[in-house]
Structures are given as C-alpha cells and as structure tokens.
C-alpha cells in the first residue's frame, strides 16, 4: 500500500528535513492513550469508587494474561502476520498445567512444560509459514484447531488445581497501600518489559520491524529473515503458553473451553494500540494500552450495572472502527 507512493511524489536531492513535531508513528498510540485517559476521566466522574487504586489494580490483575498475549501478538503482527491460535494455546496450557499437577508432578516441572507447549506450537507455526509458505492465517488457524482438539483429548472436563505450592504462587501478592500487585501482574509486566527491550534494542527486534516493512527488502539487506519470522511465532506461542499459566493461576483450574475468542481480544488490543495489521508499524506499549482500554470497557459496563453484557462487544466493535478509521486517515495523508 505504501510502497507505490514514491512514484508520484516530488523528488528533491538532499531530502527535505521533515519538521519533527510529533513523529507520525506515535500518533495512533497517542490516540489510544487519549481514549484511555478519557475513559478514566468519564468513569471517575460518573461513578464513585471508580478511580481507586483497587479498581485500577484489578484492571491489571484481571487482564494480566491478555497483556502477555498482546505482547506476543504484537511481534507477529509487526512482521505482517497474525496468530489466531493464542486463545486455544492458552487453554491448552491451562489444561496441561491442571492435568500434570493433578497427576502429582511438581510445579517446578509443570510450569516450564506448560509454557513449552506454547513454544512448540509457535515453532510449528513458524516452520509452516516460513518454510512451507502456508499463509499465517491458515497455519495458525490449523494450530488453533489442533490445540483446542488436544485440550479435549487431555481433559474433556474442567480440572481443579489444588496443588499447595502452585496455589501459593498464584496468591502471592505485593501490597503498596491500596495498590495490589499479584504474581501474574508482575510476570505480565516483566514480559512487557522484555518485549519492549527486545523489539527496540536488539537486532532481532529491528528485523521484526524490517520484515513488516518489506520482507523481500529485509532479505536483500541480508537480515536473518527466516530465523526472525519463525522466532516471532515462537515468541507468540510462548506468550500464549505463559498466558495460560497466568490464567490457570487466576482460575485455579484447567478447562478446555477457556479462551474461546480470546485471540480476537488480543488482536483487537493490538489494533486499538496502534499497530498496523500490515506490519512494520506499532509499539508493544500501545498494545498494552489497548488491553487496558478493553478492560476498562468491561469495568465501566460492570459499574453501569443496567447495561447488558453484550454491549461490551458492540462497544469494542465501535472502538475498533474508530481506531481503524483514524489509522486509515493517517495513512491516507501520508500518500
């Protein structure tokens, strides 16, 4: 879409220096931030007890797994791909965790195994997509079905988790005054930090952006396209596995029907966070803002009380529409 632009733009040698007020790349993220701030302000003025540390803490606690998913999804979408499997892989991870704990395995073994399940599926996606040139949409769709089927195979019913040390880990909480931070929030924030560092300060991260900007170009620039592309799906798969762990910690159970449609929430969060689905533009921090926006919609609808739950979906749809139109307007002005 953007590659055909130069053909009709005026050419001047030396390149006119663009006045650098606010880099256009940051505009969508700023937009997300503004929406988030507006929602907080509106919520705070409409309801008592809305802008309290407890509510904000809960926002993070309830969405920790989604933050992790969104970070992984950002990697994949930045390369211009998509990962539809994250909801199912998350479910698979909860089921593996619950089943293995039930079988008496120690958490120290179970946790890596559950996360690694996501890693392996991510690797399989990467291989299918890069080496067999299956479209990301199809490959991860197959992965989605595969993981979901595997869930049912392992545990058709919900399995409760009653392992003591796992419960201890799940209930670990740090309290700063009225603020609370659970172990899952801590993990989510660490993942976020890692995601940021990797994307901006490593060659792998920059190659992710480069692939999104033009895979052929990245290849001809001599960047390790194959490895990076596969790794992006590995990151997403691993994040989904980890997200499942966080979800299992929150729910204290493993159930094969968890996370149905959660991939949509993750994708919506990434898009609302200002990442273009064509790849190459976006920030992991934006995705987290996107998750918070989604979480706040839920919170506001809960506070409103009279609104039925389906309004959540409609509002998310409308928000998506607004952000998509905004991004469209931005790209149109550029060309």
């Amino acid at each position: 879409m953007t590659t055909s632009a130069p053909a009709r733009t005026p050419r001047k040698l030396g390149g006119v220096k663009i006045p650098t007020r606010l880099d256009r790349r940051y505009l969508p993220v700023v937009g997300t931030f503004v929406v988030l701030a507006l929602m907080l302000i509106v919520g705070g003025s409409r309801y008592e007890n809305f802008l309290t540390p407890a509510v904000v803490s809960n926002l993070f606690i309830n969405n920790a797994h989604l933050i992790v998913l969104a970070v992984g999804m950002t990697f994949v979408i930045l390369t211009g791909g998509i990962d539809l499997s994250v909801g199912s892989v998350l479910a698979l991870s909860t089921v593996i965790t619950a089943a293995l704990l039930q079988a008496g395995w120690p958490p120290a073994v179970v946790i890596p195994v559950a996360v690694a399940a996501g890693t392996v599926i991510g690797l399989a996606h990467g291989v299918m997509i890069h080496y067999f040139q299956v479209q990301p949409f199809v490959a991860t769709l197959a992965g989605m079905f595969f993981a979901r089927g595997l869930c049912f195979l392992i545990a058709p019913e919900s399995i409760a988790i009653d392992n003591a040390s796992f419960a201890e880990l799940a209930t670990w909480v740090q309290i700063f005054g009225e603020w609370r931070m659970t172990s899952s929030v801590l993990i989510a924030l660490i993942v976020l930090g890692l995601g940021f560092v990797v994307l901006h300060l490593t060659r792998f991260g920059r190659t992710v952006y480069a692939i999104g900007g033009g895979e052929q170009s990245a290849l001809l620039m001599g960047l390790p396209v194959a490895r990076t592309k596969v790794l992006a799906y590995v990151v997403s798969g691993t994040c989904a596995g980890l997200g499942g762990l966080l979800f299992a910690m929150a729910q204290r159970s493993g159930y094969s029907l968890t996370g149905v449609g959660m991939e949509l929430d993750a994708i919506a969060a990434v898009v609302i966070g200002g990442t273009l689905l064509t790849g190459g533009t976006g920030f992991v921090l934006g995705s987290v803002l996107g998750v918070l926006v989604l979480g706040l919609i839920q919170t506001i609808i809960t506070f409103e009380g009279t609104l039925s739950s389906w309004w959540t979906r409609i509002v998310i749809g409308v928000l998506l529409l607004i952000f998509v139109l905004l991004q469209r307007a931005l790209t149109l002005r550029r060309t």
Binding site: T2, T3, R206, Y209, A210, G212, G213, G214, Q216, S217, A218, L220, M221, G280, T281
Partner: peptide, 8 residues
C-alpha cells in the same frame, strides 16, 4: 528497486 525498509 530500493530494497530497504521505509518504516525504519
């Protein structure tokens, strides 16, 4: 054709 990444 310039084979660089415009977004970088």
């Amino acid at each position: 054709e310039v084979n660089l990444c415009e977004n970088l």
